[in-house]
């Protein structure tokens, strides 16, 4: 023990040599978030003739640890729109509060002028792009599902870069690779979405949630699903994957060392 409290608990210079300060970068540009911490995985959605179906599982992972298993990643806005969040959970919570305060402000005026899903998506796009331009992005991939100004089904995507696009079916994260091809079988174009029934749309989403649970190691068999139509939002937050079959599993080859 020496008489320099600032040296207590540190490697002793006489034993280990002087500390090499070049490892501790004290200069250089100011840095914001470099990676998400607690994350949610894919969000899926598909348009059908009267509305949109959207789903996301209830898991928040901490790296590869399945840390929280009751996380609701579908958030409703003004009973007409559902926003599904993938990516960083604390950023999702921030956005949820932002939308909450927006909803309160909108309700200062009791009559008319409700923000529809399209308005909300435009707003989120501006928020996300502003934050990425500040080099301080909100680390999310977001789907907005609801109805547009003409009460037609609306579905659109926005992510941490402020990138936005729209399609009859959308998926974020792993789902973009694993579920999107399946969903496109159902709705290759807008025309097909206009003919799709609600039952088929729900069935398609559930099928994809199962595919994702099979192949995405950061997913969960508990999920939330919402159906948005003119009648409003039907949100179920405690669903369980049904009729799982892992029979295909022993035929999988290619992950790591093969023993057979």
């Amino acid at each position: 023990m020496n008489h320099f409290p600032q040296a207590w608990g540190r490697p002793r210079d006489d034993v280990y040599g002087a500390y090499n300060h070049s490892y501790l970068q004290m200069t250089g540009p100011k840095q914001h978030t470099q990676s998400p911490i607690v994350t949610g995985t894919s969000v899926l959605a598909i348009k059908f003739k009267d509305g949109v179906v959207i789903a996301a599982d209830n898991l928040a992972s901490y790296g590869s640890l399945a840390r929280f298993t009751d996380v609701k990643r579908l958030r409703t806005f003004n009973d007409t729109t559902v926003v599904g969040f993938g990516g960083d959970v604390s950023d999702m919570q921030y956005l949820d509060r932002l939308l909450n305060s927006l909803d309160i402000e909108e309700n200062y005026y009791p009559e008319g002028h409700r923000l529809n899903a399209q308005n909300l998506h435009t707003y989120l796009t501006k928020v996300m792009y502003k934050r990425r331009s500040d080099f301080n992005p909100l680390w999310n991939a977001i789907l907005v599902a609801g109805l547009d100004g003409e009460e037609k089904p609306f579905l659109a995507y926005v992510d941490l870069l402020g990138t936005r696009y729209s399609s009859p079916s959308l998926a974020t994260g792993f789902g973009a690779h694993l579920a999107q091809p399946v969903l496109r079988e159902y709705v290759p174009d807008e025309k097909a979405a206009e003919n799709l029934t609600q039952e088929t749309a729900v069935e398609a989403i559930k099928k994809c949630m199962k595919v994702l649970f099979y192949r995405d190691a950061r997913s969960l068999d508990k999920y939330s699903i919402a159906v948005i139509t003119k009648e409003g939002v039907d949100l179920k937050e405690d669903e369980k994957l049904e009729n799982q079959s892992w029979a295909f599993a022993d035929r999988i080859r290619g992950y790591g060392a093969q023993v057979v």
Partner: peptide, 9 residues
Amino acid sequence: IPVDGQVGN
């Protein structure tokens, strides 16, 4: 009531 932004239970 849930805390604003609360996602779990």
